[in-house]
Every structure is written in structure tokens, then in C-alpha cells.
């Protein structure tokens, strides 16, 4: 079943991806083909089968709450695209009306 352009655009918005028109057209076809293939899972009877989220026998892992070594400010900011006065600089989150 072909995904609509609107669906592709909506998924891209949820994934925070700005797509070009060409990409939307391409992904519309390719995602449809992949999702059509995965539809074969609907043949499986899975009523009472528990889902596997992890193969591990481990559950919640706890550790002592002790402070360890941490990064210095200059190491923390080293990769930042923009900084100011020791902070990460980002566009305004709230704008005054």
C-alpha cells in the first residue's frame, strides 16, 4: 500500500528531518516497498508470545551513587558549534511577542 506524500511528510516532521521534494518522492516509494515486505509478519500468530525487548537476563542495574571523574568545561564545550561565556549557544527557545 503506497504511503501518501502527506504521510511521508508527517513522519519526516516527527523524525525532525527537513526533506527535499525529491527525497519525499524517493522515500515514498522506498518506504512503501520496505513496509510492504515487513507486512509478512502479519501472517504470524503471535497472540500469547511475549515480546523480546532485550535478550539479556539482566534487569535494572544499580550502582553505588558516588561521584566519578567528569569532563572539564573546556572538554565539554570543545565540540560545540557555538558557545558564549562558557555556555552552549542556541537559537531562542521562547520569543517575546
Amino acid at each position: 500500500m503506497l504511503l501518501t506524500r502527506e504521510e511521508v511528510t508527517q513522519i519526516a516532521a516527527l523524525a525532525r528531518l527537513a526533506l527535499t521534494d525529491t527525497e519525499i518522492t524517493l522515500f515514498q516509494k522506498q518506504l512503501t516497498a520496505i513496509l510492504d515486505y515487513t507486512a509478512l509478519l502479519q501472517k504470524l500468530e503471535t497472540g500469547a508470545v511475549p515480546p523480546t525487548a532485550t535478550v539479556l537476563p539482566l534487569h535494572t542495574v544499580l550502582r553505588e551513587d558516588v561521584p566519578g571523574a567528569c569532563l572539564r568545561q573546556d572538554e565539554t564545550l570543545f565540540n560545540a558549534p557555538q558557545t558564549q561565556a562558557g555556555y552552549f549557544l542556541v537559537p531562542p527557545i521562547m520569543v517575546k511577542e
Binding site: 523524525a15 528531518l17 531562542p92
Partner: peptide, 27 residues
């Protein structure tokens, strides 16, 4: 804007296969 920064950073920074899988996972 922040919204535009997210969308464009990721739209320009990721290649086609990564975008395809992020879309698939989001779906």
C-alpha cells in the same frame, strides 16, 4: 528558530540510508 535548526541540521547532516531508517523507525 530551534525547530528549523533541528530539521535542517538533521536533513543536511544525515545521508539517505540513515534518513530512510530514521523514517522507518519513526513510522
Amino acid at each position: 528558530t530551534l525547530e528549523e535548526l533541528y530539521n535542517r541540521t538533521r536533513g543536511e547532516g544525515f545521508g539517505a540510508e540513515v534518513k530512510r531508517r530514521l523514517m522507518l523507525g519513526t513510522y
